[in-house]
Computed example of a mutant assay.
Amino acid sequence: MLLTMTKKSAKAPAKKPAASAKAAPKKGAVAAESNKVAKTQLVELVADRTGLTKKQSEEAVSTMLESIVGALREGKSVGMPGLGTLSVKQTAARTGVRPGTSEKIQIPAGKKVAFKVASTLKGNL
């Protein structure tokens, strides 16, 4: 007996993705494959390396971040030795294209935060 397969029967049924693969990690859980270091992880690192309590470390990290944001809002650059420099740059007004409609729109001038990596860090990566 000779069996022939048509295109329709040769196609395998679509597999449903596993529910656990899409599930988001629980709050407070550290994802093993994540490349991002969260603020809570920074607080824990500071606490471990300095001997401060987690509450003191959280205050120190929060104060540092608030100071950096405050300096940037004032238009100052923030240099972090061994890491790099954060600075505020002006962007020019320009003409853009709205996706989907291809309508030309005018984008106003604004500001953006730029980061320049320190040469010591760049060389060690």
Rank of each mutant, 00 (worst) to 15 (best):
S57I: 02
V43D: 00
A29Y: 07
V117K: 03
S34M: 01
L125G: 04
A19N: 10
P17I: 06
I68N: 02
G84P: 03
A93W: 09
G51Y: 13
K55I: 08
K22G: 15
P13G: 02
K122A: 06
K122D: 02
T63Q: 12
K104F: 10
E44R: 11
R49V: 12
S102I: 04
T91Y: 02
E59W: 02
T4E: 05
K36D: 02
L52G: 04
G70L: 13
G96N: 09
Q41F: 00
K112M: 03
A109Y: 07
S9Q: 04
Q41K: 12
L86A: 03
L86V: 05
Q90R: 09
G96S: 11
A47L: 03
T53F: 05
I105T: 12
T40G: 09
Q56A: 10
A29M: 11
R94F: 05
L45F: 04
V117H: 00
Q56C: 02
L52P: 02
G123E: 13
G75A: 08
A10K: 08
P13M: 01
A109E: 10
S77M: 08
G100I: 06
A109D: 08
T120K: 00
G79S: 15
T120C: 00
A93T: 12
V113D: 11
P99D: 07
S20T: 14
G28N: 06
G70D: 14
A21L: 11
T63I: 14
G51W: 10
S20V: 14
K76E: 13
T40I: 08
V117L: 09
E59G: 07
L52T: 01
M1I: 10
G110R: 07
E44K: 13
T40Q: 09
L83E: 02
Q56L: 05
G75Y: 07
M64S: 14
S57G: 09
A60P: 00
K36L: 03
V46E: 01
A29Q: 15
A114W: 05
V43I: 15
S20R: 11
E66Y: 06
G51M: 12
A12W: 00
P99I: 14
A23L: 13
Q90C: 00
I105M: 15
Q90N: 07
K111Y: 07
M5N: 01
V78M: 13
S34H: 03
A109Q: 09
E74P: 01
D48V: 04
G100W: 11
A21M: 12
A32I: 06
K15M: 04
E66V: 14
K116R: 13
G79T: 15
K22P: 04
G79Q: 15
T6C: 05
A12N: 05
V46N: 08
G123L: 08
K36H: 05
G100M: 13
S9P: 00
V97H: 11
Q106L: 12
A60D: 04
G110N: 07
L121R: 03
T4D: 01
V113S: 09
A23M: 14
V61D: 01
K26M: 10
T120F: 00
K11F: 00
K76I: 02
G75H: 03
G82A: 07
L2I: 12
I105S: 11
E33L: 03
K112S: 07
R94N: 11
A114S: 15
T85P: 03
V69Q: 13
A60F: 06
L42G: 04
A71C: 14
T53V: 07
P13S: 04
A114V: 03
L65Y: 10
E44M: 01
